[in-house]
Design a protein around this nucleic acid. Structure first.
Lengths: 202, 202, 202, 202
DNA sequence: CATGAATGAGGTTTCATTCAT
DNA sequence: TATGAATGAAACCTCATTCAT
């Protein structure tokens, strides 16, 4: 029999959730270390301390489901941190700055997760996997447009700006992974200033 | 006897160079269409109109060498176009704008190549593949620093700005691939304005 | 401690026998639905309402033992019905007709069991599984030979006739499974007439 | 690349056809020896003298295609022999006898093929595989019905008779496989007489 | 130069079976 | 008894690469 009956994490035993989380972590490690195309079950199992790849198939219906779970987990962790800090800000400029700074904060602690995410998005061509990415882009666009309506932001194209910001942040995540002792605060400060200058009106 | 003895393109016969170029083009098509992890020799050969994968192995020492050649070819094409237009500009601000606009111009015609490049960078972990990417980043950083020395640019961190610009442009390339009728000029204009505002002094 | 120590059904607790019967039924369902080669413990457990394949291994020493039990159970059920009606007939011709008609009667109600049986015979090559099949063929042969001794049957080869009858009946069972609204009585009547014509003397 | 491009045998090289035939033969051997459910690529490769299962995948797109080819090959061989002899007969009774005798003749030489066929039909549930089997049954039915129209045959149910004959013959094939020194001619003679008695009018 | 056959490693997945709880 | 986690073998299949022709 198998444990991978449903698709969410509810309705799973304690041990089951633990194992799944452990495998998801190992998958992230593997993707970061070897790249998506070389992230085989064998490599993931090795990093998870499992004695066979059958164990992964036991806990996940397929490789796609495992990758989907990686995406879900990373987004859940990120939104928890970033969402709070955006809502705490009073102005559109403040929200933009909060978004950038909290994102970089998240990357500082979790750049491995972001790196893995990027690879999955690029490699999984189905729209299912890219959906959260697209949703985030839409949220960003809305935030920028709102600032334009209040007059805080100048009249730029919100879509282009959102794309630029989103990928600039991706680049930071990538850098934080590649540069061992990069100063995350510096990245946060500089990016915040930069997009503030690029967006503000007047 | 095999044709894949050296590593550069010199010292190869005319037909040999032709075959290699044809395979490189097919590799780009395949990566864009299926993703790096599914870009097998079989798929590449099919797109190159070859009836045997042995042909690819005959012309390239290994898969890694083929990917390296893709990177080399794409960079050669890009630098030819972009380099010229940067040198034509008189000021640092002008050079920045020229860089952005000519990059987008290049992406408009060649977003498939850029997309393939991105995938290869993410998947080929060896420093060999990432080298041109790093060199380009350095060039960008120098351009920005030069503008700061002349006082045209404000006192930002050149490295962070270079990373942000580089990845914002990657994002544009990706978008031009995903959005069928995206307006490349709009992207160019908006990005140029945006980075002008973010960098200029005063 | 395990429950699958012996091989027969005696010396087992009431619940134990119940569970085994339930699993045997589920195995039959599975074989009929998916075919022998896809009848895995997982599928059988699902149809038995069990949440673990371990349960099957607990009650049966091995998959072979489970299949053996299916064969035993089906034969026990069939002989009970068929045996009675044969003995009730007074002549050899009557016994032959009774055998055919009661067999079809049995198939009408239990063609799933017969179908499962056929698949097991074909796939389990050990002589153990084929033994009851061989015994039945011998019984049939004896019945035919007896009719020849009394002069009711003509001088055919009893073995060939037994084989033909046995497999013709198998074919009926298979048909009753495949044709949703097949008329079992028609099959019984036709076959009885047919073998009567083929066997009777004069 | 791979050789298994089309689905028929035309357009294949000489060597290719040879290898495919060799693998088909090995598949038949394996099915007869181990049963369909244990006829893995590994076992087939071993019997074909191939050093790896990859070879089979190279020549056949999938296991299903290999099994389909077995069915096709066996039917082609059988129809060649049986078809001729049926057409040579002048009466319906003659055609029936010719069908039975030539079938048994074919089984004598090729009972392994027939045995394999039966297993594939039972295990491959898709209608694709069972199609030739159904077509043959229809042909048989037509032959019997034609005899009824000319008055040579009595008024039996052609479908039931066809099923009985078809499976009686299957049984013979199975017997010829199991009984090493079975007398095929005896089977042919007895069956022909038996079905003659069962079908003829008056 | 080009082909297609061959190889063998490695990919994901399914499976029967064992075992701790 | 029953469960579900774990195991490891074996399944089918794809792949890069080599080689004879």
């Amino acid at each position: 029999m198998r444990a991978n009956s449903g698709s969410g994490e509810q309705g799973r035993s304690f041990t089951e959730r633990g194992r799944r989380a452990q495998i998801v972590e190992a998958a992230i490690d593997t993707i970061v270390e070897l790249g998506y195309s070389r992230a085989s079950f064998g490599q993931i199992a090795k990093r998870a301390g499992l004695s066979s790849t059958g164990m992964i198939s036991y806990h996940f219906r397929s490789k796609a489901e495992l990758m989907q779970q990686v995406v879900t987990d990373v987004y859940a962790a990120a939104e928890e941190l970033v969402g709070e800090r955006i809502e705490a800000a009073g102005t559109a400029r403040g929200r933009l700055r909060a978004f950038i700074e909290s994102s970089v904060d998240f990357y500082r602690a979790h750049h491995r997760k972001i790196r893995a995410l990027t690879e999955i998005f690029l490699n999984e061509r189905g729209d299912d996997a890219a959906l959260p990415h697209r949703r985030e882009l839409e949220g960003l666009r809305e935030m920028l447009r709102a600032g334009q309506l209040t007059g805080e932001f100048r009249d730029f194209d919100p879509h282009v700006m959102a794309v630029a910001l989103r990928h600039a942040l991706d680049g930071v995540a990538l850098r934080l992974g590649v540069e061992p002792d990069a100063d995350a605060d510096r990245y946060a400060r500089e990016l915040a200033t930069m997009f503030d200058l690029a967006t503000r009106s007047g």
